[in-house]
Design a protein around this nucleic acid. Sequence first.
RNA 1: GCGCCCGUAGCUCAGGGGAUAGAGCAGCAGCCUUCUAAGCUGUCGGUCGCAGGUUCGAUUCCUGCCGGGCGCGCCA
Length: 574
Amino acid sequence: MSLPLNETLTDHLDQWLIPAARQGGVEPPKRESYLFGAPKSIELGDVATSAALSLGKLLKRKPLEVAAEIAAHMALSPLVSSAEPAAPGFVNLRLSPAAYGRVLADAAAEGDHYGETSYGRGRRILLEFVSANPTGPMHVGHLRHAVSGDVLARILSAAGYAVTREFYINDAGNQVQTLGRSFRTRCLQAVGEAAQIEEGMYPGEYLEVLAREFVAEAGLDAAAIRAMPDADIAWEARNRCLVLVRRDLAGLGVEFHNFVSEKALYDNGTVAATVERLKASGATFEKEGAVWLRTTDDGDDQDRVLVKSDGSLTYLVPDLAYHADKFDRGFDGCINMFGADHIGYAARLRSGIKALGHDPSKLEIVTLRLVFLLDEKGERTKGSKRKGDIVEAMEVARDVGMDAARFFLLARSTDSEIEFDLALARQQSDLNPVFKAQYAHARVCSVVAKAREAGFTAAEPSPAAAAHLGHAIERELLLAVAELPRLVERSAAEHAPHHLTRYALGLAELWNRYWSAAKTDDSLRILQPDRPEQTAARLRLAVSVRQALRNSLALLGISAPERLERAVVDDVVE
RNA sequence: GCGCCCGUAGCUCAGGGGAUAGAGCAGCAGCCUUCUAAGCUGUCGGUCGCAGGUUCGAUUCCUGCCGGGCGCGCCA
């Protein structure tokens, strides 16, 4: 596992910058503010820093003069072949074959692990996501949660964190009782009784299917169905719905380490104990026959009931019991992925966690904004479970393909709403950019295979090989490959899976550009029979690009096929 | 009314205080005897919602407006 290239360069810069700042009697600027990054154009240099702009200001010196000194210092690094100051105070570096050789060597040595870093090493994170109520199959909204959580977990793991994926089952509240009533109705219908689904019940067709299966398996008649206690029939429905949820998750390739049941927290006494702990914390008070938690002390807009006046508990209590349990298990941090409709819940949750003696700042909340469906008429709908006409997650995923569904849902920031255009996804799925990324990968595989047939082998990953990769686009490709570890760290730190999606697409476009340049310039063809060293170096580049592309797609849970044939699209005459 | 989020090209969206603001799709003009055309090249297209402020420098940070979304229960 290697240090990202720009970190190494910034380390070298710091050898000059920190003493220079101290000698000038000022504190150096924040390292993050001057890390090496992409310059405006590859023509200016391979990487650039704005360190002189901020340091020049602090030292009250002309930034361009400081830039010149930084350039002189950077030129001493073996990773740098030239360094130039540029107005108003940038320093542009051209990297040396040694630097590019290191990129090639890292990608080769680390293989499928290239991109992983030690950023979060030694830190244990609990990631809770989806946590769909066990009242039916997953719908499209859950789909975003499932793939986003899955990918965030992969990213955190790649960044060195030890991640536990958990699913909290809300199986003790009113919704499960409602589910039980709905299920009993469907069971009665299944044996020919004239029962009716009433307002407020779950009207979905899936319950009819589950009910038919249940009465057939258990051999129940109407009397036996009516005789079943509420709790038993609700639990039966809960279990069967959970099977649906787990089936959908498996179908999406999303795995969990633990499923934690709310009801189990009641049954084993954790919830009751939590009530006592909260009361003992001094953060509660009694009013109107109920017990309240003073969450307004922590920025909530109103205090929250813990124990209702009828003696029953609000859902906040088992949820706090669950979170206290998370912290008791010794995680360094907990991340919850919340839907937009649960944003207001964060304040009371943190307040309760504090009352239970834990550090609420260790709970981080990622909010996923809504997924809207665009139907055939172009109208926005929200696909909700209670309306009955839900759009099931798997239906959409199968429709557009698992890879395309993932790519689409992961292409945008979690803070951004998504418009899922079903008609477009169904009819024109070849427009989905996921194919571009996969196609680029298949092309790299293709040329590597061709090279093998022709007897070429990739060069050893070395500065000597890198020295043959002098075209601007080759340097851009090497820089893009070099960027992956840094991008993994950034995506982990920001809890932002969408960076990886854009990375994969950008790298694919770069490769396609490189590939196509050979169509008008034969000297850019990868396989050059009369120039074996050049060919070997380019094959090494190709293999490195393939690795970065494959690894970024793997982090997204998207397949990287070695071959991708264009489907023959027949114009359907209707 | 309060909280969170969004407002950037015709559309869908990226943009970690820095150089001439980007991508995909759509439009226009080209490119398949060559390592895969699900691709590439060129071109058209922007008062980064508005107004202030901080800064050497603001699409980015702060404040206030305007427009849109989601919440605001002794439901979960």
